[in-house]
Simulated assay, not measured.
Amino acid sequence: MRCRPGSLWLDLTSNDPRVATEIASVAAAAGIASVGAPMGGGPGDARAGTLRFYTGGAEAAIDRVAPVLALLAREGGIVRTGDRIADGYTTKLLVNHLWFGQAVAVTESMLLAQSLGIAPASFRDALVGSAGESAFTTGSLDRLLAGDYLESFGIDRVVEELDAVIALAEETGTPFELSTLVGRIHRDALERFGAVDGELLAAKLLEEQAGSTLRAD
């Protein structure tokens, strides 16, 4: 299918911002507007109406697609990140990157607490309202403690997103050592378990390395 001049390309994927910029440039030369609106959230958010969209592009173009996004987002919301199509993708990738880092940091802390005799449920409760509380501890830690490694998203896709962010940091000369380590742990998980579904397989890898699993009694 070919887009006609005057039409608009709306991309909801977690695209590489560099690739999206190149595609948008080609589209613009053909008279086609572009909006990047990568989606934040998973199947549960889709059912609950709490999806979030990180939009990037010209204001007029975003206004054109706002009614469509509003229907999809419902209670979630539309976040305008900038007037370049790359801005939405970069923001979404960084948001996800922070969550992946939280998953690793919390898992390591939980494993150390457990090895020192603190029950996982007790440490989880101690995190509530503390400086260590995060989107991961409030939204996903209980699922990890139940043995759920979040099979709604593939570990290979996690690695793709982290690799894209790390590449952007390298290109801009931005210090990114801790995040690079997070990426390596997820790549090790991909190598260990293969390209299967499991957004928290890095946590499972850390459990294996520790010789201990995290479960709430």
Rank of each mutant, 00 (worst) to 15 (best):
M39K: 05
L69S: 05
D148H: 04
A20L: 05
E208H: 14
P43R: 00
R64I: 09
F193Y: 03
E151A: 07
Q114T: 10
A216Y: 12
G56I: 15
V65I: 14
A73K: 02
T21H: 04
H97M: 15
V104F: 06
R2N: 13
G211R: 01
A86R: 13
D163N: 12
T13V: 10
T21F: 02
R74F: 00
I185V: 15
E151T: 13
A48G: 04
A195M: 03
Q102L: 13
F53I: 04
L150K: 15
D125T: 09
S7I: 08
V79T: 12
I32S: 02
K92D: 01
S179R: 15
D83M: 15
I23G: 06
R4K: 12
A189H: 07
G57F: 15
I62C: 11
F53M: 01
A28Q: 02
V26G: 05
A121I: 08
S212E: 02
V128Q: 04
E199C: 10
E170A: 06
S179G: 15
L116Y: 00
A164W: 14
T138R: 11
I118C: 04
S179H: 14
R47Y: 01
L51K: 00
T138Y: 00
A66R: 13
R157Q: 01
S14M: 08
D45Q: 11
T107W: 11
S152R: 11
Q114W: 01
T138Q: 11
L162Q: 00
G41N: 05
R124S: 04
L93M: 07
F176T: 09
G129H: 03
P5Y: 10
P38K: 05
E191S: 14
L112Y: 03
R184L: 12
L205H: 05
G117P: 01
E59R: 12
E151Q: 06
A27S: 10
H186R: 12
P43C: 02
F176D: 01
G173F: 03
T90Q: 10
A30T: 00
T137K: 06
E75K: 15
R215E: 04
E171V: 10
D142S: 10
F136G: 09
C3V: 15
L111A: 06
C3L: 14
A169L: 09
A58G: 14
L12T: 05
A202I: 10
P5W: 12
E22V: 13
I23V: 12
G41M: 13
A105F: 03
W9E: 07
G194W: 07
A195S: 10
F123C: 01
R52I: 02
S14W: 03
G139L: 06
A58N: 10
E151N: 06
V65P: 14
E22W: 15
G6S: 05
A135C: 08
K92Q: 02
I166S: 15
L10K: 14
S140T: 12
L168N: 11
L178F: 14
G132D: 01
F176S: 15
V159D: 04
E199P: 12
A73R: 09
S130N: 00
S122P: 07
T137S: 04
A121R: 13
R47G: 00
A121Y: 04
T55I: 14
V165R: 08
